[in-house]
Design a protein around this nucleic acid. Structure first.
Lengths: 218, 218, 218, 218
DNA sequence: AATGAATGAGAATTCATTCAT
DNA sequence: TATGAATGAATTCTCATTCAT
C-alpha cells in the first residue's frame, strides 16, 4: 500500500482529472471523485499537487501536450497554405473525435479569469502554433501564394480561430448546438466541413477578383 | 430599508448579476454578493427569480438583448458582404468596448458547466444572426459577389466564428493574451484588425485566383 | 379593498389555517400560503394575530370548540358508563370522519414543547371532558355500576386516552398505520371497533373487588 | 481537532440527536447544533448520514432499540395478562423515567410532519409488540383468563394504546399537563397508576359482571 | 385599515483541504 | 509515505415578520 506512486498511476490520475474537468467543468469537478477514479487517495493527490488549480494546470498541460504531439505529424515541408491547412484540419478532426475530453478541457482554459494566469497559459499553449502559422503565411507570401497586404500574424490568428471553433464545434455542447443552427439542425459531415473550410481559407488567403481586376487595370 | 424595488433597481440587479457572472463564472458567483452589490436583499432576488439558474438566464437575456439592439443598427439595405461585414465589425468592436461584461458573460454560456442551457440558449441567441448571415451570403451569391460553390450556412458559420473570436479577443483574458501572442505582444488596434478582417473575408467570399484564371481561361 | 375583515372572512382564515396546520404541521405551514388560501393578505393576518404561534392557538381553539360542540350532543341524563360511552364513541367517530383536519390539528397540539404553554392549553381543552368523565364514573360508582376501588380521575383518564387514540387512529398517518398493524393490514370498521371498545370498557369498569376476593376465597 | 470518530463519539452523536429532536422537533432541530453538542463537525455528520432525515431515522432506531432491549426483560413465561401487564408497565415506567428523550422522540414520529416515514416506521417499531400482545391475549383466551368474544388484535391495540399514553404522560409536556388535570393538579405516583391500570386491564380482559350474571341466569 | 413587496436571519448541505494514523 | 476521515467555511434558498404605500 505504502508504495510510491508509479509513473503509470500518475498518468492515470491526470487522465481521470481530464475526464472529470471535461465532463463537469473546473468548479464542479470533485477532487475526491478524481482520486477515486484514479484509484488513489485524496491525500496523495494533494502531495503531488498543491491544490485543485495546480492539478487542473497539470491536466491542461498533459492534454495540450497530446494535441501538440498530434500536430507534429504535419509535414512542415508544405509551403502552400492550402495543403498545410488540409493536413491540419484532418489532424484536428481526428484528434477531436479521439480526444473529446482534451478539447473540452481546452475550452475550460479559455474561461480562466485571471490575466496573469491567462498570459502564462496562452503563451505556453499557443506560442508554437502561433509562430508556425505565421511562418507558413509569411513563406506563402514570399512565394506569391498569399496576398502581400495581409498581416501574417493577424491572418494566422484568423486561421487559428477558425480551427479552434472547428474543434469546439465537434466537442463542446454549446458550440455543437450552434453548429446545428447554421446547418439546418444537424452537424455537417467532417469531409464536407473540411472541404468548405479549405475553400474559404484558400480564397481568403489569395487575391480576390476585385484585387485582380484592380491590379489588372493598373 | 424596505425600499420598493423600482424598475431601475431591477435593472441594476441584472447588471450586478452580469458583472458577477462575467467576473467569477456561474458556479462561483454568489447570489448574496450580487444582492449586496445591487443594494437589495437576497429575499427579493428570489422573489423575482426562482433560483440562481433562472437569474443567470435573465442576465444572459438582458445581455444578449443589448447586443441584438446594437446589431439592429446595421443597414440591411446592404447586399454586398463586405459592406455588411464592415458595419457589423464596427458595431461589435464598439459594443465589446462598452460592454465587456456582456461578452464575458456570453463566453460563460459556452462553458461545459452550462451545458444544461446549451440547446435552449444557442437557439435563442444565435438563431437571428445565423439566419441573417446566411441570407446575406445567399443574396450575394445571387448577385454574383460571393462564389457559388460555397455552402451559405457553413460560410455564415465561419463568418460568425470570426466575429465571435473578435469579441472574445477584446474581452476575455485568455483570448486577449492569445491575440497578443499573434501580434507581437500587444493587442492590435481596432481599425487595423477590422481592415485585415475585412480583407480576409472579402477574399474568402469571392473567387480565388485560380477560379478567376480558370474562368478567365474559358 | 380597504374594508374591514368580515366575521366570515375571519372564519375562513381560521379554517385555512386549520387545514394547513393539519396538512403540513406547525413548522412547515406557511403563513403566506394560509393567507393566500383565505384570500387575504399576510398583512391583515399579522394585524389580527401577533405571530404564527398565536394564530396557531386561535386555530386550535376553533377546532377544539367544534369538537366540544359535537360532544354536547351526548345526553347527560345517561348514568351508565356503557351507554354514555356508546354515545361518545359514535360522536367521535362521526366527528373524526367529518373533521379530519381538526383531529390532526389536535395532535399537533400534543407536540407542544413548552410546559407553560402546554398547561394553559391542556386546561382549556381537556378540563371539561376531564370533569365530565370523572363525574360520570363517580356517579356510576354510586349506583353500583362501576367498581368502587377504581380512582374516578385515573379511570376517566384511561377512558379519555382510549378515545383520543381512537380519533388519532382515524385521522393521523402514523396511528392509522399502527392500527393496521394490529388488524392484519387494514383499518377495522367503525362499528366493529365501537363494539369491541364498548365491551372492553364495560368489562374494565365493572368487575368489582368482590369478584376478585371471590376468586381469592375459592 | 481532526479527532477520529470513535464508536463512543458516534453513540454520543446519536444521543445528541435524540435530545435535540426530542427537545425541538425534527423541523426545528439543527444539524449544526447537534454536531456542536456532540463535539464533532457538521462534515462528519454528513459523512455518516446522507441527510437530516436519515440521521433522524438513525436516532429513532437507536431509541427504539433501547426500548425493545428493555422490553426483553419481560418474562415470556407469563400466560396471564395481568402478570404480563404488571411487568410491562413496570419496565415502561422505569424506561420513561430514565430515557425521557426517547419517549419524546417517539412522540415526534407520530407527528404529521413525519408522515413520510409513517408506514415504514410504524411497521418497524410496533410490529414486535403488536404480535406479542396479540399472542398473549390469544393464549389467555385459550386458558380461559380472557373473555373469548374479544378480538385479540383490537384488544391488544387498546392495551398498547394505554401503555403508549402512559409513557407520553410521563414524558411529554402536553400529556403531563393533561394527566394532572385528571388527578387534581399533580402527577399521580407511578405505583398508584400501575395499580389502577392493572385493575382496569384485569377487569377489561375478564368477564364482566353482567356477563357472569347473564350466564348464571341462563 | 389593508396590502404584499422587502427583509435577513437561519438551515441544510457540499467539498477543498488538512493531518492523525 | 499513503490514507481517507474530519474539518468548517461558504453557498443556496426559505419564510416569518415588517412597514412603506
Amino acid at each position: 500500500m505504502y508504495e510510491k506512486l508509479t509513473e503509470a498511476k500518475l498518468a492515470e490520475t491526470l487522465e481521470a482529472g481530464i475526464h472529470e474537468f471535461a465532463e463537469r467543468g473546473v468548479e464542479k469537478a470533485s477532487m475526491a471523485s478524481i482520486a477515486g477514479k484514479a484509484g488513489i487517495s485524496v491525500g496523495v493527490l494533494y502531495k503531488y499537487y498543491s491544490d485543485k488549480d495546480s492539478f487542473f494546470l497539470a491536466c491542461v498541460r498533459r492534454s495540450v501536450g497530446r494535441l501538440e504531439e498530434a500536430l507534429k505529424e504535419v509535414l512542415v515541408r508544405e509551403d502552400k497554405v492550402s495543403g498545410y491547412a488540409d493536413q491540419v484540419i484532418r489532424i484536428l478532426q481526428r484528434h477531436a473525435a479521439e480526444h473529446r475530453d482534451d478539447i473540452r478541457m481546452y475550452h475550460e482554459i479559455t474561461s480562466i479569469r485571471n490575466s496573469r494566469f491567462a498570459a502564462e497559459l496562452a503563451e505556453e499553449i499557443e506560442k508554437i502554433t502561433a509562430g508556425l502559422y505565421t511562418d507558413i503565411i509569411r513563406k506563402a507570401q514570399k512565394n506569391g501564394t498569399v496576398r502581400e497586404d495581409m498581416d501574417p500574424g493577424i491572418a494566422a490568428f484568423f486561421f487559428d480561430n477558425l480551427l479552434m471553433m472547428l474543434q469546439f464545434g465537434l466537442c463542446c455542447d454549446y458550440y455543437r448546438e450552434r453548429w446545428k443552427l447554421y446547418c439546418g439542425g444537424k452537424l455537417p459531415e467532417n469531409d464536407m466541413v473540411r472541404e468548405q473550410l479549405l475553400m474559404f481559407l484558400e480564397s481568403a488567403f489569395t487575391f480576390s477578383r476585385e484585387d485582380v481586376s484592380h491590379e489588372g487595370g493598373k
